[in-house]
Simulated scan of single mutants.
Amino acid sequence: MIPNRFSLLAPALLCIALAACKTHAPDPAPGATFVLVRHAEKATDDPRDPVLTPDGMARAQRLAESLRDTSLSAVYATAYRRTQQTAAPTAQSHGLAVTTYDAKQPASEFAALLRQRYPDGGVLVVGHSNTVPDIASALCGCAVEAMPDTEYDRTITVRIAADGSAVMERSRQN
């Protein structure tokens, strides 16, 4: 029996149809990642603007090491010495300057500025026990528990997808 034209053409048409269905959609934009920490342990040398203790300096170094393989576009810290000293090792290791932000700026305004300025990439924000939870909450649109004045080891990471959806993760830094 001699095969008809359709039986010879069917496998070829099937391959063409499968190849046409196998289009690859472009990968979505990676979005933004904001890493927020409170400054490291502070000394008692100045009640208004203390420096970091040796333990605090060590914690700042460990923060830089933990973010070594993270792509950062910016590092932000308030004007206080303890936040600047916490941010400095990470900024230096990424070849970035520390951008100073006003600790008294409303968290919602600062978060909006960060989201607008950095729609993708990574940003480290170093703040205070009374500012970091509010900034994280404003970035993710979720509730963030308060941070006691004795807590120095919490890291809050807020990932914002290209579609604007946000996910918050909490971890502890040793």
Rank of each mutant, 00 (worst) to 15 (best):
N130L: 00
A146E: 12
A143D: 15
G141S: 13
V144R: 08
H128G: 04
A143E: 15
S129P: 09
T131Y: 01
A136D: 08
P133G: 12
Y118D: 09
V126S: 11
A111K: 11
P133I: 01
G141F: 00
L114N: 03
I135Q: 06
A146Y: 04
G121P: 05
V144Q: 07
C142H: 07
D120V: 06
V144C: 09
G127T: 05
G141R: 13
G141V: 09
V132R: 03
Y118N: 11
V144Y: 00
A112T: 15
D120M: 09
G121I: 04
A136Q: 02
I135P: 07
L124C: 03
C142F: 05
G122F: 02
E145R: 14
I135D: 06
C142R: 15
A112Y: 08
D120Y: 12
P133D: 02
L139P: 02
L124T: 00
A146V: 12
S129I: 11
E145Y: 08
A112G: 12
R115D: 01
R117H: 02
D120I: 06
H128S: 13
V123E: 04
Q116K: 15
A136H: 04
P119C: 07
C142Q: 15
V125E: 08
A146I: 02
G121V: 05
H128F: 01
V123C: 10
V123N: 04
V126G: 06
I135L: 08
L124Y: 01
V125P: 02
D134S: 15
S137F: 09
G121Q: 13
G127M: 06
N130F: 03
R117S: 09
H128D: 08
G122L: 01
P133C: 11
D120S: 15
V144L: 01
L114C: 00
A146P: 00
L114M: 02
L139K: 12
S129W: 04
R115T: 14
